[in-house]
Design a protein around this nucleic acid. Sequence first.
DNA 1: TAAGATAAGAGGGACAT
DNA 2: ATGTCAGTCTTATCTTA
Length: 310
Amino acid sequence: MKIRSIPFKQNSNCLRCGKNSLLTDEDTREQFCANCGYVISEKVDESGPEQSSFSTQGGVDTTRTGSPISLTRHDKGLSTVINPANRDATGKPLSSSMKSTITRLRTWDSRSQSQTTADRNLRQALNELDRLKGKLTISSSVLEKAAYIYRKALDKKLVRGRSISAMIASSLYAACRDAETPRTLKDVADAANVKRKEIARCYRLLHRELELKMPVVDSIQCIARISSKLKVTEKTKRYAAKILKETQKRQESSGKNPMGLAAAALYFSCVINGVSITQRDLAKAANVTEVTIRNRFKALKEAKILEIDF
DNA sequence: TAAGATAAGAGGGACAT
DNA sequence: ATGTCAGTCTTATCTTA
């Protein structure tokens, strides 16, 4: 994290005790009160928008609020270290007994922060997550959820003996599904450079051990994803959605790949509406094979969905 | 050239041993 | 734990219109 230097505010009073005793830490640029220890200026993440609040006078309150707390940082963005200089808040050297106390505290502080294997693991995983974010265009709330799931997996010691990248990718996959903005196993697998079946295995593990309640992937939502890669009219999409709704009602959709189902419905819809589209293009957009589309298409025909009066 | 048919193989869930 | 079974999906190849 980059730390922006914060203008030194002179002669300002502490917001807590009111005394004019603010000092600035040269290293961290944090302002703190030498009297009561209150820290005024937090670190500000330069890459993000200012997290400022609005004042009641109508102007913008310039109070620094720091980065938001985030599960996607290994320490949730709340890093604080004990200053290695053996001086107190006013800059005076510490007494020798205090010095040894502080040294001991520092030891435990650093241990609790980054020395545990779990935490090192988490750091690595979150780096990986950050890398995946760009490749898959994931919203931040889903990222948070993925990080949360991974933390739980770590707590339950599910990661041990498995690859970190596979586990964090599975967490992300689960988070996407949970947010009803699914990515396919293949999408995630390609982005993470992990084999599809490996991610599927880890995902099942997460699902079982963490007892995640997952909404079933809705094939109707897949229509939007497929047609975004092709140019399909709104009418065809609506018709395809109707077809899928009907198959769902008849419970003919269970156990089928939702992407294949959606692709077949789109194909069906195009045929009926006289739109020419090739199975190959559709297959490529949906990331399934032409054969799968054909099989689903055949099943749709046999189910006589066509006879329904839409 | 697109669509359909067929066969072989992979991978996983359910269930029994 | 291991094996079998039914079912799905993929890959590859051949045929049909």
